[in-house]
Write a protein that binds this DNA or RNA. Structure first.
Lengths: 334, 334
DNA sequence: TTTATTTGAGTAATCGTTAACCCAAGGAAC
DNA sequence: GTTCCTTGGGTTAACGATTACTCAAATAAA
């Protein structure tokens, strides 16, 4: 049997409201002695607040609901949740995620979440993309993380892809590299934006930005044994061509892993012959490659934190798109 | 303003209970016409069930709380949540996780979860270990996942480490390997158990189980740039020794990644000269290595699924320890 | 001493949903 | 024409915590 305020009140010989005031209402007028005594009894009886009951008066549960479009599968995307959780905890609010896996439409998942009467709802995407949120839910979702609404009706937080590509490219240039190839992720918004930043940095440095080599990294099912074949041949061609690159920028750390293998096969030394840099900072991979990989870390944690701040302070401008900076993680591949 | 049953009742000209029966109580006696009409009005008004209110009568929220001791950081451990979620969804129950990060003691986290009045609570560990659950919480936690209580007071689900090591070792032996080295994870329960399975398989095959080489893989901070140095030197020594191994079994896929690099440095071909096998099936790594890695997949998803079944059917024998089998993922490194 | 004011605590209503009863009308069996 | 069941639905009372309101006693101000 669970203990309620009534049980404590009975035991303490006071009214329920006094108990409520003693345990939760910090400002309730009452003698310190009474308050202390009630707290002791509560402790002794093993009282645990019933948030559902409280929420009936309050109107909402101390929860932030996160609707994710596959979030939980991605190793570092869980950082978003951690960021949210850390920031929300300060307000004694918990975070719970619900995955929009496969066939379930966004409406039914949102309803499922709304049944719990959360304080606010965020929509999070596993990778940076544009999402088409049905009209009737634009008001329900308070913030979009790692994605933006196609009509920009909702505040959204996205990584600053252009800025990150610009930064890492400039970093390579500052390291003396002049012939940089980019093995980019094809068909992704992130890739498109990064390519722009990449070319911009080259142009600013007086290099041929427009003519720089940008090659697509193949994208196949992760379980496939031959998913990397295209990267391998790209690198082989690059290295055997007339002007082999002195740096290769990779779409992500997994691509970099394949580039490492290909370069080794070609007998090229990293970073002496060819510097390698990348995006993601998937630590398991980046720190264990030989040499450890210099890479731009995605601002997942920061997006989560900021999302909580926005949701709880509700000072958001609906439609605003905030771009968060990546962080350069210097290792020894450059 | 949120819509309640009262609003629907008013609009439909019936009592609240009739609405409740129409929308939720499948067996409530009522004409199909009335039921249909009420459903339409609910839809039109955008009614969303208030689970908090319902839980006041029911006594619990349709939730399974998961207390994790760092769970969310591990890429594949999130599979536990997915397994739980998939199984619980059938009963229309949601799963929410709460991390026991750093300084917070297990008691306060459990209380935090209990405030939501979940149907059941599971305790999950990021890696296989023995946990000392304080006496007063042995009754609160319904099942332990990927760990077991030091006193076996709670039903627990753990990976069958011994069986997995036995299976993969036998697999190597069946592939004709006779001199197998094991670069194991030191200081971990998993490593200890796997070593037993490894030796057992060797002995059964008539090889020298007791004398087999088992070397520790270094464990340092993941961010450290030199975390792999020990693995590298182990492999170098092994390959330059009198009887170089024809197979190396690795503690996990990340260790295997380093072993690949070391073997390549020594000029050894995988799998022709040396077969490599491992534990975890961390897909990002295992499928992208060259050649793709044969590895034993941890039964995270299965543990999650089974945990939900146990919690919801409550046919668990407290203290029972169920060992779940790994799954052999054959790629081309053997 | 009289009148305010503060302190400490009780009463009762309320949130949205459900469950245990109750009741009236209509039809079937005798 | 009773009696009995079935159908369709209403009434009322919880569940646990909070809060607006009330009130008595004690203390301070006049």
């Amino acid at each position: 049997m669970t203990i309620s305020l009534t049980d404590i009140a009975e035991r303490a010989g006071v009214s329920v409201k006094t108990v409520s005031g003693a345990l939760h209402g910090g400002s309730a007028r009452m003698s310190d002695e009474t308050r202390q005594r009630i707290k002791e009894i509560a402790e002794e009886l093993g009282y645990v607040t019933n948030l559902a009951a409280r929420s009936m008066r309050q109107g909402w549960m101390p929860l932030i609901g996160v609707v994710a479009d596959e979030l939980i599968t991605s190793p570092f995307a869980t950082e978003i949740i951690r960021g949210l959780d850390g920031a929300a905890r300060a307000s004694d609010i918990a975070v719970f995620a619900m995955t929009l896996s496969g066939r379930r439409d966004i409406g039914s998942v949102l309803e499922e979440v709304r049944r719990f009467r959360p304080r606010a709802i965020a929509y999070a995407s596993m990778y940076h993309k544009v999402v088409s949120l049905p009209e009737e839910f634009a008001g329900t979702v308070g913030v979009m993380i790692n994605c933006r609404d196609v009509n920009d009706r909702v505040t959204s937080l996205v990584p600053d892809e252009v800025g990150a590509a610009h930064e890492i490219t400039s970093y390579l240039i500052d390291a003396g590299r002049r012939n940089i190839a980019f093995i980019n992720l094809p068909g992704l918004l992130a890739g498109e934006l990064r390519e722009a930043g990449f070319r911009k940095a080259l142009t600013e440095a007086g290099l041929d930005g427009a003519g720089a080599q940008v090659l697509p990294a193949v994208r196949r099912a992760t379980y496939s044994d031959r998913a990397h074949s295209l990267v391998l041949s790209h690198v082989t061609e690059l290295m055997r061509g007339g002007e082999p690159p002195d740096a290769i920028l990779c779409g992500n750390d997994r691509v970099a892993m394949e580039v490492y293998a290909a370069l080794r096969r070609e007998g090229a030394q990293i970073p002496d012959d060819v510097a390698v840099a990348s995006f993601d900072n998937q630590v398991d991979i980046a720190s264990r490659l030989d040499p450890p990989l210099t890479t731009m870390a995605l601002p997942h944690r920061a997006m989560g934190r900021m999302a909580a701040d926005i949701l709880l302070s509700s000072d958001a401008v609906p439609g605003e798109v905030r771009k968060l900076p990546f962080q350069l993680v210097e290792r020894s591949s450059v």
